[in-house]
């Protein structure tokens, strides 16, 4: 019986059953929800299809957010990736474009999959679709890895938080990066322990990130922080696959993230008061969208 209260528990159970964390989670969830594994796989495949559509939606040149503050980032990055290698290579610029596209799709009232939240919805799709389209990963393996991502997310949600209002951006984009890193390690053939290591490293590298949305909208800086989450997920997955250990076990990293989240001042937890939201330009942008009476 899985409680999803410990990452170590996931690793041990998968090792004992000689399967991946994704397969383990699928089996257990099917049992708990009283449904066939096939049905769950089909539902997850549908969610993946929504992610793919969100990328297409957000890579259109004319994509504009509801507030008018942002738009076209996914398209710009895609064009950039077509012009040359970029600084971090075409693979990465294409991945970045996907993250920008999904986050932009969200900001323009398009359809997305909260993964784990709407604010961090670009990270998992960008990572998974990049492995599928640009690395030749198997679609079934990608869909299976979403159960892995979900399992890590459930542990983080139960032991720390996945809400920016509770734990800051680390709880949203940090959790998403950890989930995506674990999923990618599994797709690339890593062990359950390496999945846990990748998740731990990603959480460590996003720790302390505050939630300071300008005008309280899921746009500035959220859209770009999805890209940061993708970069963290890739680097963490690579480190884990290279055999680099996090030194601090994943569960303790999650606990630390919770403590850091608790210690963050309220002004930096989705209240649109501190951080970027409180800068002169942040306030001016707020006024531009909502008018003058909104301090």
């Amino acid at each position: 019986m899985l409680t999803y209260r410990s990452i170590q528990e996931l690793v041990d159970a998968a090792d004992a059953a000689h399967c991946t964390i994704g397969e383990l989670t699928l089996r257990q969830q099917a049992e708990e929800m009283g449904q066939d594994e096939i049905m769950l796989l089909r539902q997850m495949d549908k969610n993946f299809a929504v992610m793919e559509e969100a990328i297409t939606f957000g890579q259109r040149r004319e994509q504009t957010s509801m507030s008018g503050l942002t738009g076209g980032e996914g398209w710009k990055m895609l064009e950039y990736s077509r012009r040359g290698e970029g600084v971090s290579g075409t693979f990465m610029s294409r991945a970045m474009s996907r993250a920008l596209a999904v986050a932009g799709c969200n900001a323009s009232m398009g359809k997305i999959v909260a993964a784990p939240t709407a604010g961090s919805c670009g990270i998992l799709p960008a990572c998974l679709v990049s492995l599928l389209e640009d690395r030749g990963a198997d679609r079934d393996a990608v869909v299976m890895s979403m159960f892995t991502a979900g399992a890590f997310g459930m542990v983080i949600a139960q032991r720390a938080s996945i809400a920016g209002a509770q734990g800051g951006c680390q709880a949203e984009c940090g959790s998403a990066a950890g989930m995506a890193a674990a999923a990618m390690v599994e797709i690339m053939g890593g062990t359950p322990q390496q999945c846990a290591d990748a998740c731990a490293i990603a959480i460590v590298n996003q720790m302390g990130l505050v939630c300071d949305p300008v005008a309280g909208l899921v746009e500035i800086p959220c859209i770009k922080r999805n890209v940061a989450g993708v970069m963290t997920a890739f680097s963490s997955a690579d480190m884990a696959l290279a055999g680099i250990r996090p030194y601090i076990p994943a569960d303790e990293c999650v606990e630390a993230m919770r403590e850091v989240g608790d210690a963050l001042p309220v002004a930096l937890k989705e209240t649109a008061i501190g951080g970027l939201a409180g800068t002169p330009t942040g306030k001016a942008l707020r006024e531009k969208v909502f008018g003058k009476e909104q301090n």
């Binding site: 999803y4 989670t25 969830q29 708990e32 929800m33 769950l40 539902q43 997850m44 549908k46 969610n47 929504v50 957010s65 509801m66 799709c105 969200n106 900001a107 323009s108 009232m109 398009g110 359809k111 997305i112 999959v113 909260a114 993964a115 784990p116 939240t117 709407a118 604010g119 919805c121 998992l124 979403m146 159960f147 991502a149 979900g150 399992a151 997310g153 459930m154 949600a157 139960q158 996945i162 989930m179 909208l217 899921v218 746009e219």
Partner: peptide
């Protein structure tokens, strides 16, 4: 909580509280 609470819900953005709710 189940796996589709984390990899989901499918929703129209931008905000689960201000839009989906």
């Amino acid at each position: 909580m189940n796996v589709f609470d984390i990899i989901g819900p499918v929703m129209i953005g931008p905000s689960s509280s201000h839009t989906a709710g």
